[in-house]
Nucleic acid binder design. Structure first.
Lengths: 124, 124
DNA sequence: ATCATTGTATTAAGTTAATAATACATTGTA
DNA sequence: TACAATGTATTATTAACTTAATACAATGAT
C-alpha cells in the first residue's frame, strides 16, 4: 500500500487514519514496535513534525505507547484494538449508507451494486 | 438535511459535495433556480466568499449556469446530471470497499453487515 | 565510555482557508 | 427612473497546516 495523500484534507489526519487501519488490520501487531518518527516520515515523504503530530494523536487514544528512547509499540490491549476496528467499520458503513441514500439509492439497490462488483477483493 | 460541516476538511469542498448531491438527487431540478450566493451562505452559516468559491467550482464542471444578475440555474442537461450521479455513487462504492478491505472485511462480510442493518433508509 | 538513535521541543517561514468589510456593474421590477 | 437583488471583485486579517532547520535529554549498543 503506497502512501498516497490527498491535498484536500490535513495530512496528519490522513496519517492517523492510515496508521489506525494498519494497526487494527494487523500490519503492526499488538505489542509490536513501530518505525521511528523519522523513518516513517521519510517513507511517507512528510515532515517529521507532521508524523509526530499523527503519533501524538494515536497516543492520546491509547492505541500506541511511547517507550521514550526506544521507540513506540502498539498496545497489547487486543480488546481496544478490536473495538477500534469495529468503530472504524461502523463509521465507514454509516457514512456510506447515508451518502448513498442522499444520492437516491435504497438499501436493496446498494446491495445489488456491491454484489455485482468485481475487483476490490483483498490482494496477496 | 442540516448544513453540518466538519472542521477536518475545507468547507468549500464540503459545500461542493453537498450541492452536487442535492442537484443529482433532484432537490434542485434541471433548469431550476438556485438560491443566491448570499442566501445560501446565510443558510449554511458560511461566508459568502466561501459559498461563491463552491459555486465557481460547480460552474466549472458545467453543472450549474450563471445568469449574471438573475441568479443561477441547474443545467438542463439531464445526461450530465445522471452521469454525475453515477460518478458520485461509483466513488462512494469504490472508497467504501477499499477501506473495508483495508480493515480486513471481505465482500461477503460487508454485504452481510449491510443486510443486517436497520435505520439508514430514506426518510420522508 | 562513546555514539547513534530515540522521542520531543522550539523557532521561523510559507501556504491555504476562511472570514470580514466593502465596492461595483448589471438587470428585473416597482 | 429609482432601487433592490444579482454575481463578482478587492483588500485585509486571522488561523491552521506544513515544512525546515535545529537542538536537547535519555537510552541501547558497541
Amino acid at each position: 500500500m503506497a502512501w498516497i495523500l490527498q491535498s484536500d484534507r490535513p495530512i496528519y489526519a490522513q496519517l492517523v487514519e492510515r496508521l489506525k487501519t494498519e494497526i487494527v488490520s494487523g500490519v503492526y501487531p499488538p505489542g509490536g514496535r513501530l518505525p521511528s518518527v523519522r523513518e516513517l516520515a521519510a517513507t511517507a515523504s512528510v515532515n517529521p513534525n507532521t508524523m509526530q503530530k499523527a503519533f501524538a494523536e494515536l497516543e492520546r487514544t491509547g492505541l500506541i505507547i511511547t517507550m521514550r528512547t526506544s521507540g513506540r509499540i502498539v498496545t497489547e490491549d487486543t480488546a481496544m484494538i478490536n473495538e477500534t476496528r469495529r468503530e472504524l467499520a461502523e463509521e465507514q458503513i454509516s457514512q456510506f449508507l447515508t451518502q448513498m441514500n442522499n444520492l437516491g439509492f435504497d438499501r436493496s439497490e446498494i446491495i445489488e451494486l456491491l454484489s455485482e462488483r468485481k475487483g476490490e477483493d483483498v490482494h496477496e
